[in-house]
Design a protein around this nucleic acid. Structure first.
Length: 485
RNA sequence: GGCGCUAUCGUCUAGGGGUUAGGACGUGAGAUUCUCAAUCUUAAAACACGGGUUCGAUUCCCGUUAGCGCUACCA
């Protein structure tokens, strides 16, 4: 719509009373806004914003029931539709029979030829009825922008129900009326609707309306090639948001799933660029498998580009949830905590695919557990080495005599002294110290980690961050056989 | 079962009657004076199968196979 200066309409299709709840609608509007998709016409948001509405409202199908019943009367009067008095039991039995006999399941058409008078009398007497559309003998064909010409034999369409015996019209019916009345030129939807389209085309014909353009987009599949669903991980928009995926990464990824730009070498598109370049003609008809790897790559890409304040805001809740950052900003926090948080983020952001992985990566800053570190097999192997003890002893005495806070430069100097004193170098030198300070033999550069520990130890945090000296002291105290050597 | 849709590297895709079948993610290797991450360089990796049409088919047509969808008084 944006590409060609059209309008994007948001319509709430809530004719299934049992499955429609206000909270779903609120969630939907919320998700769309978060993604950066805004609509020109649509329902007033129940969450408060005043976006939406327009000249073709109301935009909730549940509020358009009168419109539909007027149209049903017209169809009935013109003979394009008829009342069907068949009971569910009857229809179920017929269906079962057809399945047992390996026959295609069509409606028998039993009620098709009940006379208008008879039909009216039975209806007036209170007999329950559904309304069915009369399908003519000719094949129904239409053009799909993604797939080309599509044709269905009339028998396979059967006489579809338009209005349930409860009086509530059915989705395939109302969607057609709404699309026509709202002057929709392009119907863009999932290909699970492709088989429904001949029914809808027949409805356009019955009313004498112009059939719009259709574009059926392929389904997104999971790695096992079945429809993407909950067991594949995130499927709702909000779950991506909760994981810490940026909206621009998601929209970019979604656009790439089933579409390729001309040339086929560009991968990153902003919403603005998408609006300028996206065309339905270039949409692929084959279904695509959702690939978290590529989404993560895009997310990392946009995380790098994003404003650091914005990312800090987004990342903060994950640390708060872990109990490591305070919930509220105090005055002190503003001046000291914010710069520290930014440092923290700068260090760990390149290491994550999505924001919710941040606490795990930063864990060693907040949780210091020498016993656990020593219990780790790989760590134990490193510490079992005789030189490791020499390194740690040399390191401990020198680091303890340093003025606080320990700077990155002072730390580097100490490491050099330890190197000459112990004769250890490379891994032999760094790994024991790294284990002592962080509990693991791998992690980010000391140049960045040391200042972060030092500055962190001066802050008032829900979980205190220990200084380099404190860590060294505690770790050596916990090393049992050091003194014996 | 019936009807429909789909089929290029593991994945997302570009391309299209004659091409060294291009790019990206991921994977492997190398570089970056501890490691991890990031970054850079580099390598391996594809036209589902069988028939046509054609001088020539991965490309067009038909079929097979496989996957998905619909087959509801769900959307």
């Amino acid at each position: 719509a944006r590409r060609f200066g059209g309008d994007f309409l948001l319509r709430i299709e809530d004719t299934d009373v049992e499955r429609s709840e206000a909270r779903y609608e609120a969630q939907l509007l919320d998700d769309l806004r978060w993604l950066g998709l805004d609509w020109d016409e649509g329902p007033q948001a129940r969450v408060g914003e005043n976006q939406g509405d327009g000249p073709y409202g109301p935009y909730r199908q549940s509020e358009r029931l009168e419109i539909y019943s007027t149209h049903t009367e017209r169809l009935l009067a013109e003979g394009h539709a008829y009342r069907c008095f068949c009971t569910t039991e009857q229809l179920d039995a017929e269906r079962e029979q057809a399945i047992a006999a390996h026959q295609p399941q069509f409606y028998s058409g039993r009620c098709r030829n009940i006379s208008a008078e008879n039909s009216a009398v039975r209806a007036a007497s209170g007999e329950l009825f559904a309304v069915r559309l009369k399908i003519g003998p000719d094949p129904i064909s239409f053009h799909d922008i993604v797939r080309g010409a599509v044709e269905f034999a009339a028998e396979t369409v059967s006489d579809p129900v338009l209005v349930r015996s409860t009086g509530m019209p059915v989705y395939n019916y109302v969607v057609t009326i709404d699309d026509a009345l709202m002057q929709i030129t392009h119907v863009i939807r999932g290909d699970d609707h492709l088989s429904n389209t001949p029914k809808q085309v027949a409805i356009y014909h019955a009313f004498g309306w112009t059939v719009p353009g259709f574009a059926h987009l392929s389904t997104i599949l999971g790695p096992d090639k079945t429809r993407l669903s909950k067991r594949h991980g995130a499927t709702s928009i909000s779950s991506f948001r909760e994981m810490g995926i940026l909206p621009e990464a998601l929209t970019n990824y979604l656009a790439l799933l089933g579409w390729g730009a001309e040339g086929g070498t560009r991968e990153t598109f902003t919403m603005q660029e998408l609006a300028e370049e996206f065309t339905l003609e270039r949409v692929t008809p084959s279904p695509a498998i959702f690939d978290f790897n590529k989404l993560h790559w895009l997310n990392r890409h946009y995380l790098k580009l994003a404003d650091s304040k914005r990312v800090a805001e987004l990342a903060r809740p994950y640390f708060v949830a872990a109990g490591w950052l305070p919930e509220q900003h105090s005055a002190e926090h503003g001046t000291k905590l914010d710069p520290w948080s930014e440092q923290l983020l700068a260090l760990f952001l390149p290491a994550v695919d999505q924001l919710d992985q941040l606490p795990e990566k930063a864990r060693f800053l907040f949780v210091f557990d020498p016993a656990a570190a020593m219990a780790n097999e790989e760590n134990a192997a490193v510490l079992a080495n005789a030189s490791a003890h020499k390194v740690l002893e040399a390191f401990a005495t020198r680091i303890a005599s340093l003025p606080t806070p320990v700077t990155a430069e002072a730390f580097k100097a100490v490491m050099n002294e330890v190197k000459t004193a112990s004769g250890a170098k490379g891994k032999e030198l760094f790994h024991p110290v790294r284990i002592a300070l962080t509990g693991a033999h791998s992690g980010p550069e000391f140049d960045k980690v040391v200042p972060l520990m030092e500055a962190g130890s001066a802050l008032l945090l829900p979980t205190p961050v220990l200084s380099v000296q404190k860590r060294t002291e505690l770790f050596l105290a916990a090393l049992p056989h050091l003194e014996e050597n």
